[in-house]
Structure formats: structure tokens, C-alpha cells
Design a protein around this nucleic acid. Structure first.
Lengths: 231, 231
DNA sequence: GGGGTTATTATGTGCAGACATAATACACAA
DNA sequence: TTGTGTATTATGTCTGCACATAATAACCCC
């Protein structure tokens, strides 16, 4: 490459210099202005490239102090939070689900705490079993804040999964996610058709719209599930 | 809010209109030019805000076609890929590790395939057990391409974990990651001090520098581990 | 020499204008 | 009707400039 053109090529060139250890971890790299002069482009173009790399965790930038290679240039990876139906269909399988329970109840303390609600507040619990090609795929246990449902639940809970309806109806502005591995309880094992104690991939998500809690959900995937992404 | 100022406020305002369903999923939103006129700012500022939202999966943009709210505005979440020592210390615990094995060998077919190497190519296998406050934390099984180690392995494998040394020495340009839950094999159970069959959180990473494979590693975390992030 | 104020500096963001690019819509011809 | 070429349009990116902001460095005064 002669001189990089466009912010993507500049990003690639900077990354190359880092992996060649021209700029080792911790080193300060030239200022935007210097790089712009070297590459023969505007400072804004260099800024765009360096900003992306800082967002990926490769660089650390501070005003006045300059830009340095991160001491541990570990990258940030991103993954999608899919709608369950699309996740199943994306594997080339047919999605279906069965509504197990739908009832108003007082949630466990952990759920109330995660949502920032007073203990004893009543929520709506919806438990659903999802299938891929008719075989159990994941068990969804969802606690829902009724206050965010002005028109109540969707008209036809048998046709559209709550998961999908929520995503399209109540956009959230903030959420947290945790992944873990758990041993299947006897109940979960029976639902998913596996041996008790089997290793299940579990994701727990809690979402808010502004400062109002929407829902806290626990998804337990049948064994064999893998969450993939690239860096 | 009167009129948003700065790209972050514009991003917030657009997100607000989406969650208020002024712009429901699938709807086309005004062009950058129209929004710039409405907000009284330059098109570049609107572009920055909309680009960020597209990166988060909330909007979908296509030239000429315009910008629309994603049909399933499921967000993209990002998480860090930490150095193991920092991950342990970040929990307020003391990190240590024990080198279990370090030997040249022919890797299993799955590993060779992941790295894109001919079956039968010899790699370096390094197995390490990491501890948090002296208790087993995770079991690391790493296959390493010797070709990327011009000066060989780090001088004292007992002092710096290979994980950390690699991150600081061989920057990668591409990688893929998979998370899953697996039942502990008898060997893993013994190493981690848990019952055989316990649910382990497993991450598998493979990384390349350019088109040259660097390493493929499998990390099996002791029960209780949670990978967290926010959206 | 120490402490607080001021100047300097690199990044962060903004603006207006320009051209590139991709994808659509339309007109026209076979 | 069907296919093809062309005009249109919204986004993608770049330039050059400006000012804001944060953090460091320098200075001055006591």
C-alpha cells in the first residue's frame, strides 16, 4: 500500500503498525494532525479512524494527553440480541412455542431487585417453551411490568410469541445482560427433555424504557446451543 | 427538550421517537436533510447520530432507499475480552496460575480445522489452570501456531501467563468467539475442584493476524462465572 | 520550594460544501 | 410484457475550517 485512502484504510494501517509493534502497547502514537499530514488527508478522516479503534478498545485517547496503544489491546466484541423466532429460523429450523403459564404474581426478590421495584409489587409472569423443528429449544421465564402495557397483552398470545411482540411494541432504551452456565433443575430438565443436571446456557436480560422497568427475562437454552460472534 | 443540540441529543431524540412509536418498526424516517433542517444543525451531525443507531441495530440504512426503523430493533451489545489476570483482579481477587503442560503435538481435527491448518500440522499446546484467591477459576487449553513466535515463547512461562503475554506481543486482526455451556469432564472436574458433570461456562476463541492463524483457545470457567454487559 | 493560576495543546465536535456510490424509479425500446 | 439504460435521490465520505473542552505544562508569586 502506498498511502492509505479513506478512513477504513487508515484504520487498517494503524492496526498494522500496532501488530508490527511499530507502536507497542502503551506507546503514544502521533497526533491526528501529524498523521493527517503523513497520509495527506484531513484531520477529520484520521479522527474517524482513531475513534473507531478507540471504540474497539485498541487505542486509548485523552484530550491533550494524546492517543496511545492500549496496554492490553483486548478487543470489544459485539453480538446480536435476536428475536427467538428469527434465531431458530436462522438455523434453518421451524419455530413454534407453547405458552406454559400466564399469571399475575409477586416475583422473587432477585427479580424485583433487578427491576428496581419494591418487594411485593405484583408483576405478570409469562412462561414459554420454544421449539425448533418440534424439539425443545429454550425455556423462557419472563416477568413483565404491567405499567408498560397500556393496551394490555397482545390480542393473540397463541400466535405471536411475547418475546417478539415486546420487541416490536415496547422499545427499550437501556438493558443489561448476563450469560452463565447452569445445571438444569428437574423442572427445566423435564420441559427441555434432557437429564436433570445437564449444562444449560442461560442468558438473563433486564430492560428499561427511560427509568421505567419493562421486563426481566431468563432464557435457558437446551444443550448444544452456542452463541457466536466475531471480533 | 426544545431542540436537541449535538449528535448525542439527536440520537436520544430519535430513540425517543422510536420508543414512543412515532416511528414504528419498519417505518421510514425523514431524510438526513429534513432532520438537519428540523433540528437546525448540519447534515453531518444528523448523520453521526443515525450512523450510531444503525451500528446498534436500531436503524437500517440503505443509500437512496433511506433510513428505516429496524423491523426487530434488537440491539447489538458489546462486551470486553479481558486478560484473565485483569478479570480476576477486577473482582477484587488475587490471580495466580499453574502451568500444567507445554508440549508440541498434533492438534485434534476440530482445532486444526478452526485454524485452517492441514491435519497433521504440529502445534504447541499449553494448558494452564488459573486461580482466583487460590481457588480454581478457569482451565485454559490453548493451541498455538509456532510460526507466529519469532523469538519463541516468553522467557519465563512461570511468571507471566501466556494469555497475557500473547495479548501484549501478538496483536491479532481478526477473531471469532463462541460461548456455550458444557458439562465438566472428569479431568476438568478434578482440575477445577467440582463434581463431574457440573455446568461450566465455556468460551472458545480463534484468532488470526492477517491470514495467518495465531491461536485457538478454550476457556472453561468454574461454576458461578457470569459474563455481564449492558446495551 | 510549594501552591495556585494561566497558557498551551490534543482531542471532540460542529459547520458548509462537495463529490462518490448505490439503489431505486422511470422512460423507452424490443 | 420484459428488459435495459438513464436520471434521480439518500446515504457515505471527504475537505477545510472553527470553536469547545479537558488535561497537562509553565509560570508566577509568596
Amino acid at each position: 500500500m502506498s498511502t492509505p485512502q479513506g478512513w477504513e484504510e487508515i484504520r487498517a494501517e494503524v492496526l498494522r503498525r500496532i501488530s508490527r509493534r511499530d507502536w507497542p502497547p502503551g506507546a503514544i502514537i502521533p497526533t491526528e494532525e501529524q498523521l493527517a499530514a503523513e497520509f495527506g488527508c484531513a484531520r477529520a478522516t484520521v479522527n474517524r479512524a482513531l475513534r473507531e479503534l478507540a471504540g474497539a478498545g485498541v487505542l486509548e485517547r485523552r484530550r491533550k494527553a494524546g492517543t496511545r496503544v492500549a496496554m492490553y489491546p483486548a478487543r470489544r466484541a459485539t453480538f446480536e440480541i435476536p428475536v427467538i423466532r428469527l434465531e431458530v429460523e436462522g438455523r434453518g429450523q421451524r419455530h413454534s412455542f407453547r405458552l406454559l403459564e400466564q399469571a399475575e404474581a409477586v416475583p422473587p426478590l432477585a427479580v424485583a431487585a433487578r427491576l428496581g421495584l419494591a418487594p411485593g409489587a405484583r408483576l405478570l409472569e409469562v412462561r414459554t417453551l420454544h421449539f425448533a423443528d418440534g424439539k425443545p429449544f429454550l425455556y423462557e421465564d419472563r416477568w413483565l411490568n404491567p405499567a408498560v402495557l397500556p393496551e394490555g397483552l397482545p390480542p393473540d398470545m397463541q400466535a405471536t410469541s411475547l418475546n417478539e411482540w415486546l420487541v416490536k411494541t415496547v422499545a427499550y432504551t437501556y438493558g443489561d445482560i448476563a450469560f452463565s452456565a447452569e445445571s438444569a433443575t428437574p423442572d427445566e430438565a423435564a420441559l427441555l427433555g434432557v437429564a436433570p443436571g445437564a449444562a444449560l446456557f442461560v442468558t438473563e436480560r433486564t430492560t428499561w424504557a427511560g427509568d421505567q422497568p419493562i421486563t426481566s427475562v431468563r432464557l435457558a437454552y437446551a444443550p448444544g446451543y452456542r452463541l457466536r460472534t466475531v471480533v
